[in-house]
Design a binder for these strands. Structure first.
Length: 927
DNA sequence: TATCTGGAAGTAGCC
DNA sequence: GGGGCTACTTCCAGA
């Protein structure tokens, strides 16, 4: 690292600049974005700044603790409100951020001292001092001398939990290096950060978005050559980069500390980066290039860049591999001279890229981040689209990656023609690539955009998303990894959006807007790295399922952009899971009358003759209300298929569908993920049920339609499962969307149709009085018209700390706390601790949820620790039962509820994240 | 030689 | 505090 990098002063300057100008700056940004975007930033630029928008949107939330309601209303809530607009993002009027003008109370950002981190970081990165002549800096910038890192790292800024000092591991080490690195870590704090990340904490660190990881990753020294972003923010950075092995946080791994793996250790890295750390290459051009660059967008970009590169500078700490990569591919403007012409990616942005330059756009898009990421530049250049207009390519205001988007709208449909295999062992940064994700039948996944008749190519975005029962969002522990080589025929480009690495693949008309995804691998980030991030609430342990998430932004004639998204089936990424755990990919039936008796064929992997299929009804708190082992036909059992007889449901008198789960168990701790199954009332024909009354809408929303789903499918579809389709609830027309499909029958590949609200549809729905119980109308009313306020209708999975859906809840009529309302609110703040959605939407759950917003099946699960406290004793629990019955006036059949710690494992695992979130939220006032 | 893979050793955390 | 287990991460070796 060069002295410059380490120059605290430098960082502080920026920091300060930021802080001081804080609000003003923030405001400026906004205004910039909103108003001046066009002027200040040429669309092309905006385009490039893609990340920014996302950040904005997302971020608005995250870093800013206060943002709360204000934000929501305008921000998320707004999104919701505007719903319709959501998908259509107006490129024209929108702020680059895409957010309504203002919504975002980014102001908060400013205030916070913690910002230093972020800012500093930010600047630090930027620091690229060389790049940024001090003279160019804003005069107003106050220079803060950095006496010591301590100062730098204002303890106050750190959340208690996160406080480095608190961490034993970092202790000393943390002092300088940590601090040093720390800044990087925080870029996320910036308001622009993705919301997904940590929502809300004022605490800078908290602000640390999980997405950050991505950035880190990107910047991270270790990441794989081209890609793997490492989240180094963690220990290495914070805790003491000095440690030999960058990794283990808190000395979890002694060996690492011992330098057992020197190779990994940044310090030892054999292949120091020639170019120096890939810092954010905020080059003069990009950053200061011209006066205009100071525009908000520029700032945003810079921030983004900063964000991403958190770890970069740890020069020493950069893992060989990462470093190598970074070096090779992403020359950082900042410190070192980039190899001339190294590649596009690295090329210091010149202030004037031709907007048309696709490559460039990408670069710019990623702005600093990308450079940072060091996207390996392929020998071949990113094809320049015939005429990829910014609009076609990307709108400045694109929905954040954690927003739920429809897979189709109007004539357009983004579809995964060929699903990826259910197992793909992800590689660590310390490993070589494990290749591209493949399709189960050989070959690679294929994605196609239907209904697009224009001649302009579009860009298909791919990122790694979660596969749990919550809303789809970028996975904190996995990043897409760009694969290159002889075997790769698909051109791709990496970009970083909201701290998540995104692979961009051209969708060409000549190929029927079809792309073979043979260039996407999956990188696993060390849990320790990610978990230590401030603001990161998810846990990595056993959180090994991901989905490939594809997005495409289709420019509309009216200037808006239609964003479609589709997620693949879940992909198990762990080695062990792939080898031992049973996996259910498909089920021949996903609903059946309570009488049971029907044979159901499960398709998947690792089935054994001894495999058991257990049907479970879970209470909102996660306890098993009912368990029943289904009969399996051992004779027909094959490694890839299992025939099971659907057991009769415990309550033969249900009046509405009840969703339960089942899993395949190969032994202790070897069980598949829960699959959803719906029991239908005995006398009810297996036909779709439409919400009929206020009392049961929830039910319908939550559970019904399963029977409808004609195709067997894995239940995975978190988003679907979690979110009752608002649209369905709101719009009569949408009722047709199988809620269930959303719940589980929807092919994993399908994205939440729930959100599939075309602007028109959505608008109508909202406007439509007929959907009264969807108290959404008011919101709609509040919301600016779509055109006026292009906000993604998509659901914003808030970060854990995200304020509860206050806005929505009130609107929901009490008696309705049905799934619809619930679902809706969930949709708004899916991750909100206060409004968790039960992964399993059985009737009781729906109702209860409403009654007990804070607890959902998942949340109710206690974290591992908590669990331990739980009585392992098996005993009858009447709670769930009673409530359920009472609610439905059903004569409950006595049920014995067993508490089996082991059994709950899965539940816990599934819910741990939520729990953690809750814990964090409760413990952290700010958040 | 480089990449991809499968397998397994070493380590950490939990019971 | 040690042993057993499981999960995570890293390393090794073969194709």
């Amino acid at each position: 690292m060069t002295g410059l990098e380490q120059d605290p002063e430098f960082d502080f300057d920026f920091l300060f600049e930021f802080n001081q100008s804080g609000e003003a700056a923030a405001a400026e940004h906004y205004s910039y974005t909103s108003s001046s975007l066009s002027s200040a930033l040429p669309l092309p630029t905006a385009h490039t700044s893609l990340p920014a928008p996302c950040h904005d949107l997302q971020t608005s939330t995250p870093g800013i603790s206060a943002v709360p309601s204000a934000n929501h209303p305008s921000g998320y809530g707004g999104a919701v409100d505007s719903g319709a607009s959501g998908y259509f993002l107006s490129s024209s009027n929108a702020r680059p951020n895409g957010a309504p003008a203002l919504e975002s109370p980014r102001i908060e950002i400013t205030s916070y001292m913690g910002l230093h981190h972020g800012t500093s970081q930010f600047f630090h990165d930027v620091e690229v001092e060389d790049v940024l002549p001090s003279c160019k800096r804003s005069p107003s910038t106050a220079t803060l001398s950095l006496p010591s890192m301590e100062a730098y790292r204002d303890p106050s800024c750190l959340s208690p939990a996160s406080s480095l000092s608190s961490r034993s591991c970092n202790s000393e080490a943390s002092s300088y290096e940590s601090n040093y690195s720390y800044p990087y870590a925080s870029p996320q704090t910036s308001p622009w950060q993705s919301p997904c990340v940590s929502p809300k904490t004022t605490d800078p660190e908290e602000g640390f978005p999980r997405g950050l990881g991505a950035c880190h990753l990107l910047g991270s020294p270790r990441h794989s050559p081209s890609t793997s972003p490492r989240t180094s923010v963690t220990e290495e950075n914070w805790l003491g980069a000095r440690g030999s092995r960058p990794t283990s946080p808190c000395n979890k791994r002694k060996y690492s500390l011992n330098g057992r793996q020197p190779s990994c250790s940044p310090h030892h890295s054999p292949t120091p980066s020639p170019h120096g750390s890939p810092r954010v290459s905020v080059t003069e051009d990009t950053w200061l290039g011209n006066s205009t660059q100071y525009t908000s967008s520029a700032i945003v970009a810079a921030i983004n860049a900063l964000t991403t590169d958190s770890s970069l500078d740890l020069g020493d700490g950069i893992p060989v591999k990462s470093r190598k990569t970074a070096l090779e591919h992403s020359p950082s403007v900042a410190l070192k001279v980039e190899p001339a012409g190294e590649d596009l990616g690295t090329t210091p942005p010149t202030s004037d890229f031709p907007p048309e330059d696709f490559t460039f756009q990408h670069l710019r898009k990623g702005a600093f981040c990308e450079q940072y990421l060091s996207v390996p530049q392929p020998p071949y250049q990113w094809p320049k689209p015939k005429s990829l207009t910014p609009a076609s390519y990307m709108s400045p205001s694109l929905p954040a990656l954690d927003w739920q988007l429809p897979s189709h709208s109007g004539p357009f449909e983004l579809r995964i023609e060929v699903q990826p295999k259910s197992h793909h062992r992800a590689h660590y940064e310390t490993e070589g690539s494990r290749g591209a994700v493949k399709a189960s039948a050989g070959g690679h996944p294929i994605v196609q955009l239907h209904g697009y008749l224009e001649s302009e190519p579009l860009t298909l975005q791919l990122f790694i998303g979660t596969a749990d029962d919550r809303l789809l969002r970028p996975h904190a522990f996995y990043q897409v990894h760009r694969i290159t080589g002889k075997t790769v025929s698909t051109t791709s480009h990496e970009a970083i959006l909201s701290n998540t690495k995104v692979l961009e693949i051209p969708l060409l008309p000549e190929n029927n807007m079809r792309a073979t995804i043979d260039c996407a691998g999956i990188l696993k980030l060390r849990n320790s790295d990610i978990e230590l991030r401030k603001g990161e609430t998810d846990i990595g342990r056993k959180n090994t399922r991901v989905r490939l998430v594809f997005r495409v932004h289709v420019p509309q004639p009216n200037g808006r952009t239609l964003s479609l998204q589709v997620a693949s089936n879940p992909i198990e990424c762990s080695q062990r899971s792939a080898q031992e755990l049973p996996l259910v990919e498909k089920q021949s039936t996903d609903s059946y009358p309570v009488i049971g008796g029907k044979k159901m064929v499960l398709s998947g992997h690792n089935f054994l003759q001894d495999s058991k299929v257990i049907f479970v009804e879970k209470a909102p708190d996660g306890h098993h209300v009912w368990e029943m082992e289904a009969k399996t036909d051992r004779d027909l059992c094959k490694p890839n298929s299992l025939v099971v007889e659907i057991p009769p449901f415990r309550n033969q008198r249900i009046t509405s569908p009840v969703q339960v789960s089942f899993y395949v168990c190969n032994g202790k701790r070897k069980r598949s993920q829960y699959q959803h199954f719906t029991y239908l009332p005995a006398n009810v024909p297996i036909i779709k049920t439409e919400p009929t009354d206020d009392y049961e809408p929830a039910l319908t929303c939550g559970t019904m339609s399963q029977g409808l789903s004609p195709l067997p499918r894995p239940y995975y579809s978190p988003q679907l499962t979690m979110l009752p389709d608002p649209s369905s609830c709101l719009v009569a027309g949408f009722a047709s969307y199988p809620q269930r499909s959303t719940m589980m029958s929807t092919p994993p590949s399908s994205s939440p149709k729930l959100h599939d609200l075309s602007s028109a549809a959505y608008t109508k729905g909202i406007a439509s009085p007929g959907h009264g119980h969807l108290e959404l109308q008011p919101q709609a009313a509040e919301a600016p018209t779509i055109q006026e306020v292009p906000r993604p209708m998509a659901v914003q999975p808030g970060s854990p700390k995200q304020p509860p859906p206050v806005l929505l809840q009130p609107q929901v009529s009490p008696h309705l706390s049905s799934s619809c309302s619930l679902g809706y609110q969930q949709a708004l703040c899916p991750n909100s601790p206060s409004s968790p959605l039960p992964s399993i939407a059985h009737e009781p759950t729906c109702l209860q949820s409403s009654a007990h917003p804070p607890t959902t099946g998942q949340q109710q699960h206690q974290s591992p620790k908590v669990r331990r406290n739980e009585s392992p004793v098996t005993g009858p629990l009447s709670l769930p039962e009673v409530r359920e019955d009472s609610n439905h006036n059903l004569a409950p059949i006595p049920v014995t509820i067993k508490r089996e710690p082991e059994e709950l494992d899965q539940l816990y695992l599934d819910d741990v994240n939520e729990i953690i979130r809750n814990d964090l939220s409760s413990t952290n006032p700010h958040s």
